[in-house]
Protein backbone atom coordinates (compact mmCIF):
# COMPACT_ATOMS: atom_id res chain seq x y z
CA UNK A 1 0.00 0.00 0.00
CA UNK A 2 1.08 3.58 -0.68
CA UNK A 3 0.94 6.05 2.18
CA UNK A 4 1.45 9.81 2.47
CA UNK A 5 5.20 9.28 2.86
CA UNK A 6 5.31 7.53 -0.49
CA UNK A 7 3.46 10.40 -2.17
CA UNK A 8 5.76 12.97 -0.56
CA UNK A 9 8.71 10.94 -1.83
CA UNK A 10 7.13 10.86 -5.29
CA UNK A 11 6.95 14.66 -5.36
CA UNK A 12 10.50 15.02 -4.00
CA UNK A 13 11.89 12.62 -6.60
CA UNK A 14 9.90 14.39 -9.34
CA UNK A 15 11.35 17.72 -8.21
CA UNK A 16 14.87 16.29 -8.32
CA UNK A 17 14.24 14.87 -11.82
CA UNK A 18 12.93 18.20 -13.04
CA UNK A 19 16.00 19.92 -11.56
CA UNK A 20 18.28 17.44 -13.30
CA UNK A 21 16.45 17.63 -16.65
CA UNK A 22 15.47 21.32 -16.63
CA UNK A 23 17.94 22.32 -19.32
CA UNK A 24 16.82 19.48 -21.57
CA UNK A 25 13.14 20.37 -21.11
CA UNK A 26 13.86 23.99 -21.90
CA UNK A 27 15.89 23.01 -24.98
CA UNK A 28 13.00 20.87 -26.25
CA UNK A 29 10.65 23.80 -25.59
CA UNK A 30 13.00 26.19 -27.41
CA UNK A 31 12.50 24.14 -30.58
CA UNK A 32 8.70 24.35 -30.69
CA UNK A 33 7.60 26.52 -27.76
CA UNK A 34 8.76 29.51 -25.77
CA UNK A 35 11.83 28.01 -24.07
CA UNK A 36 10.61 28.15 -20.50
CA UNK A 37 9.27 24.66 -19.73
CA UNK A 38 12.27 23.52 -17.70
CA UNK A 39 12.69 26.68 -15.67
CA UNK A 40 8.93 26.99 -15.12
CA UNK A 41 8.58 23.43 -13.84
CA UNK A 42 11.70 23.82 -11.74
CA UNK A 43 10.18 26.83 -10.00
CA UNK A 44 6.91 24.93 -9.54
CA UNK A 45 8.34 21.72 -8.12
CA UNK A 46 10.69 23.61 -5.82
CA UNK A 47 7.61 25.33 -4.43
CA UNK A 48 5.95 21.92 -4.08
CA UNK A 49 8.80 20.47 -2.01
CA UNK A 50 9.01 23.63 0.09
CA UNK A 51 5.26 23.50 0.79
CA UNK A 52 5.41 19.79 1.67
CA UNK A 53 8.17 20.52 4.16
CA UNK A 54 6.20 23.33 5.73
CA UNK A 55 2.64 22.01 5.74
CA UNK A 56 1.58 18.75 7.33
CA UNK A 57 -0.05 16.33 4.90
CA UNK A 58 -1.50 13.20 6.48
CA UNK A 59 -2.96 11.47 3.44
CA UNK A 60 -1.95 10.72 -0.15
CA UNK A 61 -4.83 12.89 -1.33
CA UNK A 62 -3.65 15.84 0.77
CA UNK A 63 -0.12 15.57 -0.64
CA UNK A 64 -1.32 15.66 -4.25
CA UNK A 65 -3.88 18.40 -3.64
CA UNK A 66 -1.27 20.62 -1.98
CA UNK A 67 1.25 19.90 -4.75
CA UNK A 68 -1.32 20.71 -7.42
CA UNK A 69 -2.23 23.99 -5.82
CA UNK A 70 1.44 24.97 -5.62
CA UNK A 71 1.98 24.19 -9.31
CA UNK A 72 -1.01 26.29 -10.38
CA UNK A 73 0.29 29.18 -8.25
CA UNK A 74 3.95 29.16 -9.12
CA UNK A 75 4.75 27.68 -12.54
CA UNK A 76 3.76 30.74 -14.56
CA UNK A 77 3.18 28.85 -17.84
CA UNK A 78 0.51 26.53 -19.20
CA UNK A 79 2.20 23.59 -17.46
CA UNK A 80 1.10 25.09 -14.11
CA UNK A 81 -2.66 24.79 -14.49
CA UNK A 82 -2.28 21.54 -16.47
CA UNK A 83 -0.03 19.68 -14.01
CA UNK A 84 -1.78 21.42 -11.13
CA UNK A 85 -5.13 20.10 -12.33
CA UNK A 86 -3.66 16.63 -12.88
CA UNK A 87 -2.39 16.38 -9.30
CA UNK A 88 -5.24 18.21 -7.62
CA UNK A 89 -7.93 16.14 -9.33
CA UNK A 90 -6.01 12.97 -8.58
CA UNK A 91 -5.65 14.08 -4.96
CA UNK A 92 -9.35 14.79 -4.65
CA UNK A 93 -10.15 11.42 -6.18
CA UNK A 94 -8.05 9.70 -3.50
CA UNK A 95 -10.16 11.36 -0.81
CA UNK A 96 -9.20 10.87 2.84
CA UNK A 97 -7.73 7.37 2.54
CA UNK A 98 -4.58 6.98 4.66
CA UNK A 99 -3.20 4.39 2.26
CA UNK A 100 -4.08 3.52 -1.31
CA UNK A 101 -3.26 0.66 -3.63
CA UNK A 102 -1.98 0.89 -7.19
CA UNK A 103 -5.49 0.36 -8.66
CA UNK A 104 -6.80 3.35 -6.68
CA UNK A 105 -3.83 5.43 -7.77
CA UNK A 106 -4.49 4.47 -11.41
CA UNK A 107 -8.15 5.39 -11.03
CA UNK A 108 -7.26 8.72 -9.42
CA UNK A 109 -4.69 9.56 -12.10
CA UNK A 110 -7.33 8.72 -14.70
CA UNK A 111 -9.59 11.34 -13.09
CA UNK A 112 -6.64 13.75 -13.15
CA UNK A 113 -6.00 13.08 -16.83
CA UNK A 114 -9.70 13.65 -17.57
CA UNK A 115 -9.37 16.99 -15.81
CA UNK A 116 -6.36 17.89 -17.95
CA UNK A 117 -8.28 16.98 -21.13
CA UNK A 118 -11.27 19.08 -20.05
CA UNK A 119 -9.06 22.04 -19.16
CA UNK A 120 -6.80 22.10 -22.20
CA UNK A 121 -9.14 20.57 -24.75
CA UNK A 122 -6.41 18.30 -26.13
CA UNK A 123 -6.91 14.74 -27.32
CA UNK A 124 -4.43 11.85 -27.59
CA UNK A 125 -2.16 12.38 -30.60
CA UNK A 126 -2.16 16.18 -30.34
CA UNK A 127 1.50 16.11 -29.23
CA UNK A 128 0.91 17.03 -25.59
CA UNK A 129 1.55 15.65 -22.12
CA UNK A 130 -1.48 13.38 -22.64
CA UNK A 131 0.53 11.29 -25.10
CA UNK A 132 2.77 10.16 -22.22
CA UNK A 133 0.20 10.23 -19.40
CA UNK A 134 -2.57 8.17 -20.97
CA UNK A 135 -0.39 5.16 -21.90
CA UNK A 136 1.24 5.40 -18.46
CA UNK A 137 -2.08 5.27 -16.63
CA UNK A 138 -3.19 2.41 -18.87
CA UNK A 139 -0.02 0.48 -17.97
CA UNK A 140 -0.13 1.21 -14.24
CA UNK A 141 -2.01 -2.01 -13.53
CA UNK A 142 1.19 -3.84 -14.57
CA UNK A 143 3.29 -1.86 -12.12
CA UNK A 144 5.35 1.30 -11.92
CA UNK A 145 8.10 0.02 -14.23
CA UNK A 146 5.53 -0.71 -16.94
CA UNK A 147 3.98 2.74 -16.46
CA UNK A 148 7.38 4.35 -16.74
CA UNK A 149 8.21 2.45 -19.94
CA UNK A 150 4.83 3.36 -21.43
CA UNK A 151 5.27 7.05 -20.56
CA UNK A 152 8.77 7.18 -22.00
CA UNK A 153 7.63 5.40 -25.19
CA UNK A 154 4.68 7.79 -25.40
CA UNK A 155 6.97 10.81 -25.11
CA UNK A 156 9.30 9.51 -27.84
CA UNK A 157 6.26 8.76 -30.01
CA UNK A 158 5.38 12.48 -30.05
CA UNK A 159 8.39 13.17 -32.32
CA UNK A 160 6.60 12.51 -35.64
CA UNK A 161 3.35 14.12 -34.49
CA UNK A 162 2.14 17.58 -35.49
CA UNK A 163 1.23 19.79 -32.55
CA UNK A 164 -2.45 20.68 -32.36
CA UNK A 165 -2.56 22.49 -29.02
CA UNK A 166 -0.66 25.35 -27.44
CA UNK A 167 1.98 27.60 -28.87
CA UNK A 168 3.64 24.77 -30.82
CA UNK A 169 0.46 24.37 -32.89
CA UNK A 170 1.20 27.73 -34.54
CA UNK A 171 4.21 26.05 -36.14
CA UNK A 172 2.02 23.60 -38.05
CA UNK A 173 4.09 21.01 -39.87
CA UNK A 174 7.30 22.53 -38.54
CA UNK A 175 6.44 21.06 -35.13
CA UNK A 176 7.00 17.59 -36.64
CA UNK A 177 10.35 16.01 -35.79
CA UNK A 178 10.60 17.41 -32.26
CA UNK A 179 9.80 15.61 -29.02
CA UNK A 180 7.08 17.34 -27.05
CA UNK A 181 8.42 18.97 -23.87
CA UNK A 182 5.19 18.36 -21.94
CA UNK A 183 5.13 14.67 -22.80
CA UNK A 184 8.79 14.52 -21.79
CA UNK A 185 8.19 16.09 -18.38
CA UNK A 186 5.16 13.84 -17.91
CA UNK A 187 7.43 10.84 -18.45
CA UNK A 188 9.72 12.22 -15.72
CA UNK A 189 6.77 12.50 -13.35
CA UNK A 190 5.74 8.88 -14.01
CA UNK A 191 9.33 7.63 -13.79
CA UNK A 192 9.52 9.29 -10.37
CA UNK A 193 6.78 6.92 -9.18
CA UNK A 194 9.02 3.92 -9.78
CA UNK A 195 11.97 5.63 -8.14
CA UNK A 196 9.88 6.64 -5.12
CA UNK A 197 8.72 3.03 -4.76
CA UNK A 198 12.28 1.74 -4.83
CA UNK A 199 13.08 4.18 -2.03
CA UNK A 200 16.09 5.50 -3.94
CA UNK A 201 15.17 9.08 -3.25
CA UNK A 202 16.93 11.49 -5.58
CA UNK A 203 19.89 9.16 -5.98
CA UNK A 204 19.69 8.54 -9.69
Amino acid sequence: MLDADFFRRWMTVAAASVDREADRLTALDAAIGDADHGSNLQRGFRAVTAALEKEATDTPGAVLTLAGRQLISTVGGAAGPLYGTLLRRSGKALGDAAEVGTPQLAEALRAGVDGVMALGGAAPGDKTMLDALIPAVDALADGFAAARAAAEAGAVATVPLQARKGRASYLGERSIGHQDPGATSSALLIAALEEAASGAEGSR
Binding site: I72, A78, G80, P81, L82, G84, L119, G166, R167
Partner: peptide, 14 residues
Protein backbone atom coordinates in the same frame (compact mmCIF):
# COMPACT_ATOMS: atom_id res chain seq x y z
CA UNK B 1 -3.54 33.33 -24.53
CA UNK B 2 -2.48 29.89 -23.37
CA UNK B 3 -1.56 29.80 -19.71
CA UNK B 4 -3.64 32.91 -18.98
CA UNK B 5 -6.77 31.08 -20.16
CA UNK B 6 -5.82 27.80 -18.49
CA UNK B 7 -4.92 29.41 -15.16
CA UNK B 8 -8.24 31.24 -14.92
CA UNK B 9 -10.10 28.04 -15.82
CA UNK B 10 -8.14 26.08 -13.21
CA UNK B 11 -8.90 28.71 -10.57
CA UNK B 12 -12.60 28.67 -11.47
CA UNK B 13 -12.63 24.87 -11.23
CA UNK B 14 -11.28 25.10 -7.68
Amino acid sequence: LGSAVLTVKALLAE
